[in-house]
Every structure is written in structure tokens, then in C-alpha cells.
Design a protein around this nucleic acid. Sequence first.
RNA 1: GCUCGGGUGGCGGAAUGGUAGACGCGCUGGCUUCAGAAGCCAGUGUUCGCAAGAAUAUGGGAGUUCGACUCUCCCCCCGAGCACCA
Length: 872
Amino acid sequence: MKDKKVEYNPNKIEAHWQKVWEKEKTFSPDLKAAKKPFYNLMMFPYPSAEGLHVGNMYAFTGADIYGRYKRMQGNDVFEPIGLDGFGIHSENYALRVGRHPREQAEISEKNFYRQLRATGNAYDWTRTLETYDPDYYRWTQWIFVQMFKKGLAYRKKAQVNWCPSCKTVLADEQVIEGKCERCSSIVEKKDLEQWFFAITKYADRLLLGLDKIDWPEKIKIAQRLWIGKSEGARIEFVIASGAKQSQKETASSPSASRSDTIEVFTTRPDTLFGATFMVLSPEYPIVSSIKDKKVQDYVRAAKKRTERERIEEGKEKTGVFSGLYAINPVNHEKIPVWIAEYVLMAYGTGAIMAVPAHDQRDFEFAKKYGLPIKKVIVEPRFAGVIERHPEGVINVDEGVNGVNEAYEGEGVIINSSEWNGLKVPEEISKVVDWLQDTGIGKREAHYHLRDWLISRQRYWGPPIPMIFCSTCEKNGIGEHEDTPGWYSVTEDQLPVLLPDVEDWKPKGEGTSPLANHPEFHETKCPSCGSKARRETDVSDTFLDSAWYFFRYISTDDKTCIWDPERARKWLPVNMYIGGAEHSVLHLLYVRFITMAFKDWGLISHFEEPFPRFFAHGLLIKERAKMSKSRGNVVVPDEYIAKYGADALRLYLMFLGPFDHGGDFRDTGIEGMYRFVKRVWRLVTQGLSSKDQLSSINNQELERVMNRAIKEVSGDIENLRYNTAIAHIMEYVNALIDFHTKYKILDTKYCKSLLLLLAPFAPHMTEELWQRLAVSGLRIEETNQTKRQLPTAKSIHFEPWPQYDEKYLVEKEATIVIQVNGKRRGEIRIQSSESRIQSLVEGKARKEVEKYVEGKDVKNVIYIPGKIINFVV
RNA sequence: GCUCGGGUGGCGGAAUGGUAGACGCGCUGGCUUCAGAAGCCAGUGUUCGCAAGAAUAUGGGAGUUCGACUCUCCCCCCGAGCACCA
């Protein structure tokens, strides 16, 4: 080439376009005027000062590509970014580096935003938000106040998860395998009074809503299991009179309203006749009133162990007889009441009816302590036998003695008077109806989901906007009748500012550092005016991130939580992309908060915040998750400096399917950098005018282009970026071959190539697009030192290329010939002829004569245009 | 223990009933160069063979089918989530 070569210089190009896009507000849609709003959102990042690593970049780039594709399809795409920098994650980082969280937040913010800019994502930089900004957390606090006003926020003394290292309580969702979600310390149980959000009131809606949303099945299943609905019945057992314990009424608990009965929850009311004993959890209220020394020793030993120890001690069940008896309400048998660890206070009523014949745990317990086992369900194949025994009593001991497991499968009820012959599980419902009619029990569902423990004994978070007045408490007055002494902070007093204090580190005494600051917590009661105290705990980080996408649409308006008109236009979020690790944390909380907003009338046209969610895979390094402690965190900066963000974006997306993640090894980046340079060279050197082309038959090229458009479009729509890039590469290879052969190339092929590549490599495609617009044909070195603002419309607003089916058909078809399913040859044939089977068969037959010769052709299978198989 | 993903060349992966290994990395040989880089050309699952060619091959085993990486059943291995939930 004689032309002056135009060198590819990614650093220069990328910095230039990033500046231009931000200055021109290229990716800041007019939220009011937009005609085709498309809210493209990536999961909220929390910034640490190590900053953004390639794992984050992997996720964000994948989300950005989708947004850019939607923009080129004519949508007004809104792609905001912000920082979830309030809360325990950020505070723990500040602790580690020994800097005040506020100071650290400033450093992290600057660094994180710088890195995010360098990745070239199409963020709307005019609408960033940070959760630690008082203009933001004012509304987080406002949400808390609304929760309190609607009775969804309440205080309760309960056994809660306590992380001894983070020195705070945690929600159930934040305990992973008995360990702290943040620091992996073993979580302890503590009896503390805390604030909760009543997410369980939404359990059924959270469950039902899953059927209506387009989320990965995996995530939906995880949420279903977490919500964990089990349907059954609550059944009351009366304690047999004659038990001489003095039963003092203990602290009122919903599960033990009366001390002379024991209520149980069971999913198998059909086995009630088989209940031969009962088991109470060691924490069950009446247990403490049993004076027996053996009982109290057992209970004390059990309580001393952590939950984790109890589980780790394995399947070996231990227990002690309480001395009490209860009456089985259906057959009036007197059955013993035991106390055992394997029954958990936290689930159901903390007491169970034990049916050893049909529950493996009860079975093991019964075997160990020699308790009776009564079979009340038989396998379906015995159904006929039961009909011949009107009493429904057959082989009571069959399958029990000498067998070492309970029968938990489906079957038919026996030994249960009028229930005999009912099929289970199909007819359990009839049993429950019967129990309801006779007043023995009532239909009930229980959930694994617990209320969301929202308070944290930490500094770096939004102070919970509540005030406690002991005077009012004494008088039994409060904002609600049932919350004496407690008042929410009035709206005009929000935000309750987090004060700058020196002793911000967690103390571990069950209170927040703010408890040491009277200047913060001393206040006046909003009702009676006497001395009162502010709540000093802060709220959970997950509350900050549970509503951020509402705020993005109105960051310019400080007078309301969001502009309702914009909400109607922009919400719900069209596409949400993030990690699967939040399936039962963030993604559940967000759905709950959104449903609450709907009930409060803040929104009306939706209650699922994310109708479409895509879970990307995890980018790992050397087969392990990137983490500071492993020392395998890869930062994108040096790669961007060396190869440019465009090459790195392409490399990351080419690694494998976006929902699978991948292992980051930098060997492949070189190859991708070469690819980017090849494209650059092709477009800068290879263009000629149309007239020169008239003599060359470029039908094949036309087909390749249309095919590329079709494949790339479909792949991006399904977020299959790796194959999209592969198809772009095939297209590039075809263009280079053509150019090598004829030395010319029609500009339109280069243009379509740039358009297809634009979402992946936004900077270099913009640069080439703009140069093409200026020069029309041949790109030469322009005066780079005096760059002007773009003269043409940004490539990122150009319409996405369309393909035409008619160019996709090949003139010649290759038909593979098989004999008995084995490939034996192939023929090429005019596409028009491929429809005529006899013709194809004849030609194919000749081709594979040596394999068919002298044999009977029993069958010929022909798939037009693809394959022909002779069966001999 | 239960639930959900996976298992394909030296590597990442493609192909969801019709030519297994697209696309890329790596590697081998060649061209170009003073040299390097970059670039270009050819090759690259395994076994036998100088070659033509043949056999064989998608964790293992069985099955359905004219035809199976793809569907069904059993087993092995890896990863993720939940876990004494009554």
C-alpha cells in the first residue's frame, strides 16, 4: 500500500470518544421525551478500593452490549450507573485499610468511576447515584418510616444470627452454610431485640410472581426453595391431666398460647393416627417449667451448643422424656411427650407429632428409645386388600420390624377408622377438611422464609429513623397502639444524618458505635416532648440496594422519591443483568420492596421490578473465584493500557457463553488484539468505489454478509456473545479473502461490519465510522492533533443492519451421502434440483456404488438439501 | 441427603436428531526480514499408512432411531445452591 498507513492506537481513540460521548451527553436519553424507553440495568456494584476487577468488567460489558444493541434497534436506552457504597462491605474494607469509611468512600468513588469510564460502557453519567449520599439515604430512611407506618417494620426479641467478627446481627439470607456472607466467620445465635421487615406477609405473592417473570429457571427454583412453602395443618394436642408440673405462663409466643395444650404443624395430617409420641424443641416455652433434673440437664446442654455444632453432630438423635403425656385427638390414645434437639424452635410451632412409621427422623428416634411404631400408610398396591378388610386393618407390623426405614412414599391410609382407603398425597385435603369440621385442626401453610432482620450494629449505614420515648412507653402510648414508646421520624426531619465520628469501629456489645454519641441520639419525643432516644442501629445494606433503580429515573429531583410520570414511562426495568449469587438476597428483597410500593400506591402498573433477568456466569482466575485473600484479582487497567478496552471487551465476551462465565487467562487477548487490528487495517485500506466493482461477481459476499447479520442479531438477542463474535470473525475472514483476491471492496460491507461490531468494540467502530463519513471512501491519516467534534451521527445511533432471506440461499447444496448411517461421500448439486429426490438419489447412488453394490437397498431416507441415507 | 447445572481435541468452546470439533488460542512447517515484532501461506482429535485411504472418537454402560454430542434408563466424575423445615 502506498497510502500513508493509519496506525491503530486504541488509547488515543478510546480516550477521545469517551470524552466526546460524555460531553455531548450521547448516552443520556431525555427521560421525559423518550418515545421508546428501554431501561437496561446492571446489578449495582459496591466499590472497594482495589477497584473494579475484570470480573466486574465482564458482567458490565455483557450488559452494555445488550443495551447498545437495543439502542441501534431504535430504542431510547437508559443505562445508569452508581455505587452501592454504604454498608458493611464498604465499612469492612475501610477497617482493613484503616481509613474512615467516609474518606475511603471518596477514594473508592473516584477510582471506580475512572475505571468504569475506561471500559467504554454507555452509561448516563448525568444520573449517577451513591447510596451514602444523604440525598439518597434520606429516601432509604423514608422507606423505613413507611414500613413502620404500614405495620411492616416491627421490633421483636428473637434468636438472631450474630457474626462475632462483623460484630453485628445478620438476616437469614446472609448466613451461608452457617457462616457470615461477608467474612465467613461462624455465625452464633443470640437473643436480641431487633427491627424486622415483615417479608413473610408477602411469601405467597413472592412465590406466585415467579410464574410471571422471565428469569433463569435456576434462580426461580432457588427462590421457591428459599420461600419454602409447605402446606399442611395445625393440630392441637391436649396435655393429659395428672401431669403435676406447675406450668407457669411463659413469655407469650404465638406458638404456645395455652400451657395445657401443645400445637403442632404437620404436612402429613393423614398420618395422625400413626402419631405415637410428640417431640418438643428444647427451647419450647413449657419445657423450662419442667422441674425434672434430667430434662433440665439435657436442655442446658443443648442450648450451650451452637446450631452449627448441633447439625455437625450428625444424624444421631438424642432426646429426653419430659414426664408429660398428651392425648392424640383422633384416637384419644395417651402418648408420651419427649424433648429433642432435632426439633427446631424456629420452624412451625417448635413441637411435632412424631409418626415413626412414616418419617425417617421420627423412626430413628423411636428405634433408639423403644417407642411404638404404628403403620398407617401402605403402598398403593395394597389398595385392593384394604377393600376386603372393612376395618382397614392389615399387618400392622409389616414393614416396620426388621426394616430400618420409614415409608415416606405415596399410598393408601389404613388403621385410621373413617380415613381408611384414602389415597395420599392426593386426598390429604379431605383429611384436613375433616380436621377442620371436627375442630381438631386447621389448614395452614408454613414457610422457610423468615422476616427480614434489618438492623445492624454498625456505623456505616443509614441510621434507622426511629425515636424511643420511655415516658410514652410507661403510659402505653406510641405511634401505633402495639408499639408503645416508638415513633418514626417525621418526613420533614429526614434525613437523619449520619454524624462524622472518630470512634466508628464496631464494638461488639450489641449496639452501634452511635450509641456512644449522645449528641446524636439524645432528642425529644415527637409526641410528649420529654427526653427521648434515637435508634442508633443502622439499616442493612441490602435495603439500600433494594430500590435504587427507582431513584435513577429522578436523581435530578430532590422533592420526591421519584417522579411518578417517569416511573410510568420507564419502569419496570426492561432488562436486568447480574450475578446468580444474589438469587435469594438482593433479588428477593427487591421484589418484596416493589410489592410493598405497589400496596402503598406509589406505583400501580407493575409489582415485579424485573420482568426479565439474565444471570451471567462467574469470571474466575485459575479455577478459583477472584478474591483479595487468594491474591488472584485481575485488574483491567493494565490490559486496557496495552490492548485497549475494545480488545479486552471482545476477549471477555469471546471466552464462552455469557451465562457460563470463564477462566481468565491472558494468553488469548493477544489474538483478539490482532483481530481488532485486522479489522482496522481492512477498513482503513480496503475501500474502492462501486463502479470498480461492477465487473466482479460478489454474490457470495452478499450471502456471507446477510448470514452474518442474521446470526449476530439472533446471538445478541439471546446474549450468546461468544458465537456472535465468531460469526463476525467469519465475516471478516470472508472480507479479507475477497480483498486479497480483488484488491477492492465495496464500502457497504465495511459499514455493515462496523455496525455489527459496534456493541462489542464501541470506540474503534465509532472512529472508523466517523472517518468513513468524512472521507466517504478511503481513510487516510487526518490531522489527529486538531480533532474536531464528530461530524456525523454516532454509529451507536445508526439503525441495526437488516438481512434479506433471499440472499441466504446457496446456489449449490452439498448433500452428504450415508450408507447405513455412515458417511460415505458427498455430492454438490444445484439448489433447485435438490428438491427432486429421484435425481439426487441417482447421483448419490453412483457416488457410493462400491458400498451398495450387490446389496439390497431396503430404504432410502432423504432430507432435502442435507443428507441422503441408503439402508442396505 | 435433596435440587439444579455440567462432562466434546493440548486449551476456551461450536453443533440440541442429519458432514462432530464452527470461531479463536496454542503448536508445527514455510514465505517475508540484517534481526525481532507484525503479517501472509499450509497443517494440526487419535490410531494404521509414504500416500490414497481406512478404522476410531463427544465421562462409562445399555436402549430408542435409517441416523444420537443431542432423546430415554443406569452408573461414574466435577461445579453450584439448599440442608434435622415436621
